[in-house]
């Protein structure tokens, strides 16, 4: 281009043509983006719903159905008839419609970045029954053992998280201890070489459980209504 002498260069284009061209291209682009967005929206929503459902059912053993509830200061409501904004609670039910537990999200700082987890809580045994890492950037092969280490994940099959007598918090802290030294209820066996990540899991579980379990505690009966009964209630 630079080799063309100035005299031979074409005249500058009129500005209305520049604006018109860019405007037209932008319009077409916008149309294309919007139509693709509309086309993919249901698929994306479905993907996300399925991923969430799989996660919830995984952390609540025995559950085959997930229902969404909203926790507000007034109580727990099914999501569609919640009167106010509140925290989303996922509850799991088995094939007979029996309530199996709730799934809660927790997050905290790990070694590399914030770790987000989902954990299942069963009020019947007052314990954490499952844990799944939703998002983590922990070091592969080291920090990511919080997801892959069998000994570590086994901690969360039955981790006691009973409430204290006043029902204001947990009876005992949930805490990560040195690998193999788990004794007291609420203690999690850590991972050799991934102390920071393993401790982070214990800390975020403790923080979340201390706050949310006492708030949920008065409402277990409302959550554990069998599916059929609830539908009947909706019909009233």
């Amino acid at each position: 281009m630079s080799s063309v002498p100035i005299a031979q260069r074409p005249k500058p284009t009129a500005s209305h043509k520049l604006i018109a061209t860019l405007g037209l291209i932008s319009l077409c682009s916008g149309l294309l983006v919007v139509s693709v967005f509309e086309f993919t929206k249901p698929y994306i929503a479905e993907n996300q719903r399925r991923a969430l459902e799989a996660a919830v059912l995984q952390v609540i053993p025995g559950a085959v159905e997930r229902r969404e509830f909203i926790l507000t200061p007034q109580g727990v409501w099914p999501r569609q008839d919640a009167p106010a904004e509140g925290r989303l609670i996922h509850a799991g039910f088995d094939a007979q419609g029996q309530f199996k537990g709730v799934a809660l999200q927790a997050a905290g700082r790990g070694y590399a970045d914030v770790i987000r987890i989902l954990y299942g809580y069963n009020p019947a045994c007052e314990c954490i029954v499952g844990m799944m890492v939703l998002e983590s950037r922990e070091t592969p092969g080291l920090g990511d053992k919080i997801e892959t280490d069998q000994n570590f994940t086994a901690n969360f099959r039955n981790l006691s998280a009973a409430l204290n007598a006043e029902r204001t918090g947990l009876a005992h802290e949930i805490i990560t201890v040195r690998p193999g030294s788990r004794q007291a209820p609420g203690e999690i066996d850590g991972i050799t070489g991934a102390t920071v990540s393993a401790n982070a899991i214990g800390r975020m579980l403790n923080e979340s459980a201390q706050v949310w379990l006492p708030m949920l505690a008065p409402h277990w009966s409302a959550l554990s209504l069998p599916v059929g009964a609830e539908e009947a209630m909706d019909g009233d």
Partner: peptide, 20 residues
């Protein structure tokens, strides 16, 4: 740039729809 950005956005939605 507008054209490229458009198709990048399209690809972004498509991948999101195909596999989370």
């Amino acid at each position: 740039i507008i054209i490229i950005a458009t198709f990048v956005t399209v690809v972004d939605y498509l991948i999101h729809a195909i596999s989370l």
